[in-house]
Design a protein around this nucleic acid. Structure first.
Lengths: 134, 134
DNA sequence: CCTTACGTTGACGTTAACGTCAAGACACGG
DNA sequence: CCGTGTCTTGACGTTAACGTCAACGTAAGG
């Protein structure tokens, strides 16, 4: 009975695109911008092979996209997770970046909660109007 | 002593652009897309005059922009607040749209909270690393 | 009257994030 | 051997959201 490590899965471009519902083209685009780095296999290294790392990064990319972040900003963000800096100065710099990110995200959360509140308010008024008509 | 209504303020394009830190060009753009509708004053109606309605809408526009919504989607959203439909069918349609919006916003909130959680996790690890080094 | 400030309308330029061909390599079933 | 499917690399097209002139009008101050 194995102790850890399930089948070390990999993906072809079609499988990955399928699973995340993005196009082949988009994956190539993310790669050109340095967001993904699939292995090259086959004759002359002509085919892309995606590993768990890419799978994880793609999920982060798409979440960032849903939140409206530009791709190059997304890259610097997810790179923060991958690179484990060993030097103190780098660590401090990273902590600083994290701080900025947090401020940004918390502001967005504020915006969203405001929007939701106003939306629910509008909803109440609509329901009231409907009730009055019935 | 007046009962209500403070000075019914209006804005020139420069004042509005200044207050919200956007460009004259952006305001014209929003107008072309139907997001703003300033009054026209001066000789031959050659100058724009923005009222409270535009002021409010602009705030909503910018919040939508911060959240990454496309401008035409923002327009349909803020139009929901302005148009008070009197007919039952329209009201039901509006309630339906509100539902969609809510789903969207709640998903975004989820994304953001996930991001924040991971960020704080990373922050902890960084601080731990720093402490270990000191 | 001349400059300066503020405003106007085109109209073309730019960036981001892909979409959309075109043309070709490689493997496999029939 | 031939078509079908999957993949590759260019390379050009597209949309959104403005930026950036250019050219002009008007009002105010000196």
């Amino acid at each position: 009975m194995p102790l850890m490590s399930r089948t070390p899965r990999t993906w072809t471009i079609a499988e990955l695109a399928d699973e995340f519902d993005v196009t082949h083209r988009a994956l190539r685009h993310y790669e050109q911008l340095g967001l993904l780095g699939p292995e090259r296999v086959g004759p002359g290294g002509s085919r892309r092979l995606y590993h768990r790392r890419d799978h994880i990064r793609l999920a982060l990319i798409l979440r960032g996209r849903r939140l409206g972040f530009p791709l190059d900003e997304i890259r610097t963000i997810i790179d923060m997770y991958d690179d484990q800096p060993g030097e103190a100065g780098q660590l401090r710099y990273l902590l600083d970046q994290i701080g900025h990110r947090r401020v940004d995200l918390e502001r967005r959360r504020q915006d969203i909660e405001q929007s939701l509140a106003e939306l629910e308010d509008l909803e109440q008024r609509c329901r009231a109007d409907l009730d009055r008509m019935a």
